[in-house]
Amino acid sequence: MALPNLALIAFFTYRPLLVNMYYSTLDWTLGAMDATVVGFGNYVEFFTSPDAPAVLGATGIFTVATVGGSMVLGLLVAVSLNQKVPGRTLARSAVFAPYVLSGVGVGMVWLFIFDPVYGALSWVLRSVGMASPQWINDPKLSLVMVIIVYVWKNLGYCAVVYLAGLQSLPQDVMEAAALDGAGPLRRFFLVSFPLLSPTTFFLLITSLLSSLQAFDIIKIMTPTGNGTGTLIFEAYLQAFGAYNRAGYSAAISVVLFVLLLIMTGLQLRFVERKVHYA
């Protein structure tokens, strides 16, 4: 019964992965009829390239900031939405709504907001006598800009998952902690948050994988990768930008795949030890 699905997964997932690894050993221009085998030459070129530190640095900063920001803000929002207040159902829907929106649409709307000349944010800043930062033209601010937008879009996912975890906590434990004199803060940090460790572990893995593969918002808001050249966006630029270097792009994609594999393995090996499932 599982064989058809396994065959589809093998053909559409693992076969392209293996083919991409083979392409990474070629000096191949996209669309060319022939290619030259260079072995690990593309990998050596990438790691010795002067652009490699910037690409790896942008990837690390973007991943840490978006994963940490989404999870921390998502947890705070989930705690707020877990309270019995009027309109909480509407608030939960509003918080989760950005997550299901198209990344292209989100990027275009926020690009208008951050535009230093015609943007809504620049108009607000000018109305109080302040100059608008050059969000799009400054490489450092461009990275901050896409981080803010990505966190805004994805914190609703973390909030909903954390909310489900909060609602599944054993109430007898919470009531016992309250009877023992633990205040709201102590109950949260010493009881609720440790019991949420399976939820935190799940979100850490899924958010990390999602952030390392983030593309649509970066592509829309910074088409040339001005300070936002993460690994996956650099692979896109090398293959479909001005270079058309399909083999070199495939090598960058393999580097990203190995990085994802290592990060997931480290989490399963070390982080899961601190997870309390019971």
Rank of each mutant, 00 (worst) to 15 (best):
S253E: 03
G227P: 12
K140L: 07
Y243F: 11
T228C: 02
Q167K: 02
D34R: 07
P53N: 03
F202Y: 11
G31M: 01
G74W: 09
A52Y: 11
M174A: 13
A235P: 08
A78R: 03
S211A: 08
G227A: 06
Y150V: 09
V124D: 10
Y162W: 13
V72T: 10
L209V: 05
Q171W: 12
A120I: 14
E175M: 04
L17R: 03
L18I: 01
W28R: 00
R15T: 00
F11P: 04
W152N: 08
F257P: 01
Y22G: 00
L203E: 15
L196F: 06
G105T: 13
L26P: 06
C158M: 15
A97V: 02
L204W: 10
Y99C: 05
A7Y: 14
C158G: 14
G156S: 12
V146K: 05
V144D: 13
P53K: 10
M1T: 14
Y162L: 09
I217G: 11
F257Y: 10
T13M: 08
G119N: 04
I232V: 08
Q213D: 01
I9S: 06
W110T: 07
P194Y: 02
G119V: 03
V151D: 09
T36C: 01
L73A: 13
G165A: 10
G41P: 05
V95Q: 06
S207L: 06
A52Q: 09
W110G: 06
G165L: 07
T200C: 08
S192Q: 15
F112L: 06
W110N: 07
M21S: 10
Q171G: 15
W123D: 05
L196V: 11
F12C: 01
I217Q: 06
L121R: 05
S70M: 07
T228R: 00
V146N: 11
Y162D: 08
F240D: 02
T222R: 01
A65I: 05
P194N: 00
I205W: 00
T228G: 06
H276A: 15
L231C: 05
T66I: 01
G57Q: 07
V254K: 06
Y43W: 12
L203W: 13
W123R: 10
A239I: 04
I148K: 00
Y22E: 05
L204S: 13
V72P: 04
A91Q: 15
P139D: 15
Y99T: 07
L18V: 00
L121C: 03
S197Y: 13
L75E: 04
Q167L: 08
Y150W: 15
F201V: 04
L260K: 00
S197E: 09
L266M: 04
I232W: 01
V117H: 11
G265H: 12
A78W: 12
G129R: 08
S93F: 14
V109A: 02
K84M: 14
R269H: 13
L18G: 01
D138F: 06
T230V: 02
A246H: 07
R15C: 01
L155C: 07
G31Q: 09
A278Y: 13
F47L: 05
Y248P: 00
Q267K: 08
A235V: 03
A10P: 12
F188H: 09
V128F: 04
V128Q: 04
F46D: 05
A250H: 07
G156I: 03
S122F: 04
S211Q: 06
V144M: 12
L141D: 08
L155F: 15
V275P: 13
S80P: 03
N5V: 11
C158N: 15
G165Y: 13
V271I: 13
V271P: 12
S49F: 13
I217T: 10
A97F: 12
A91C: 11
